[in-house]
Design a protein around this nucleic acid. Structure first.
Lengths: 225, 225
DNA sequence: TTAGTTTAATAGTAATACTATTATTAATTA
DNA sequence: TAATTAATAATAGTATTACTATTAAACTAA
């Protein structure tokens, strides 16, 4: 990933690379805003086209359907988080410190310097929190997995699992903990905002610091020798 | 909840109580089978009616739309798990032992004596695993929460959180751990079956024992004083 | 037994998901 | 520069989905 230029994603995610044309970039930008506004179930290419002042058929020339568009956005997000984690941990030798930075990046990714004009990272983060799991909870998950549609998420899990293992060589569940940290980060922000009785953390006006503290508590307690 | 009779659920979940009529029970039975078969996105009342040899309009007389039907099934499932947990922990005084039984019940609920003829608990469990989170990942979550549509899940979380607190009074995240155990139980079965690189556990022909072991490891490590 | 009430089926409509065809613009070559 | 080709977008559809108003049947109570 090169900032200001282009995020590299599986080219089977789209029919035509949206990053290459102005119309494509407009689709990305406006779809993020519209999905956040009305939710993924109500989101349609017709409504998107209307908002963009383009046509439904034009959107279909970039993405096969709205599921593929969501998959694209989710992949974009995890690729971006992976990039940020690499940046932020590059000069850190201590693995405990590394994991802390990873957790911080997970939670505050949206607050980092936005890199690309047509992606509102903050709004995209909210979409990942509330719609992200729909990307893989589908009947066709096995075929899509074979096509490599979830590679970004799996690679990121592997990357964090490595750090986890270097903290405690004997810990038998490094991938489990890694993916669970991602899931918990998003879930408990969502719970705090909508179903507070499912969590103990509080989130008030986009302050996720309690979630960060909770994830650190879980991760380091679990990894204690 | 009384076995063989009727599960008590929020009566705003349905237009007409499906447990009260043969047609209603048929809707529950066949929708469980059809959602498992084709996935929730492809599931429509038209297809359900066809399978049931009834009509779309008849289904609409029981449920407002397919989202409400999913919510009903999910509530039914958590109510049933809560009931099983009560049954299975009734005579256990030791809280650690209680938590173990809770984890076991969570994972193997589908294997317990089926209680109601028109609900295939085993298939329902698979639906909860792959479609369950869609019940609350919706734009209208706040209004639905106000109506009490997620009460079963929240009550169950509170119940388990109590046991967690009695194991370690100083643990600051009892609800977080409780809901996380539910989410992990389902997620890691799903991951093991479809995205194995996101987990360390293996699931082969419906043998969830590695998931159980993993959850115990997480729960008790976290709760160690 | 008949009037009232509950229940289900018919027959729609508006919106959605998607596609084939045509029109327009841009790029390339003669 | 004009003609040809290629790339792109818009028009105008169709089949399916989500839902509802109306009618018909069946069951209930006086």
């Amino acid at each position: 990933m090169a900032i200001g230029i282009k995020v590299s994603l599986n080219d089977k995610l789209y029919i035509r690379d949206p990053q290459e044309t102005i119309l494509g970039q407009k689709i990305i930008k406006q779809s993020i805003l519209l999905i956040e506004e009305i939710g993924f179930e109500s989101f349609t290419f017709r409504k998107l086209a209307l908002k963009m002042e383009s046509t439904e058929a034009s959107v279909y020339r970039y993405f096969e359907n709205k599921h593929m568009l969501l998959l694209y956005l989710v992949s974009w997000y995890w690729e971006w988080v992976g990039f940020l984690i690499d940046m932020n941990t590059r000069n850190i030798a201590n693995p405990e410190e590394k994991l802390k930075v990873i957790i911080h990046t997970l939670i505050f990714a949206a607050k980092e310097n936005p890199s690309i004009e047509y992606v509102n990272e903050s709004v995209l983060h909210r979409i990942i929190i509330s719609e992200g799991s729909k990307a893989y909870h589908i009947k066709t998950v096995d075929e899509e997995n074979k096509e490599g549609f979830f590679k970004n998420y799996k690679d990121l899990t592997a990357k964090v699992a490595l750090v986890i293992s270097s903290i405690n060589r004997d810990f038998p569940y490094p991938r489990t903990l890694a993916s669970n940290l991602f899931e918990m980060a998003n879930n408990h922000i969502y719970f705090a905002q909508h179903l507070p009785r499912l969590t103990d953390v509080k989130v008030e006006n986009e302050d996720f610091s309690e979630v960060e503290k909770m994830l650190e508590h879980f991760a380091f307690k679990i990894l204690k020798a």
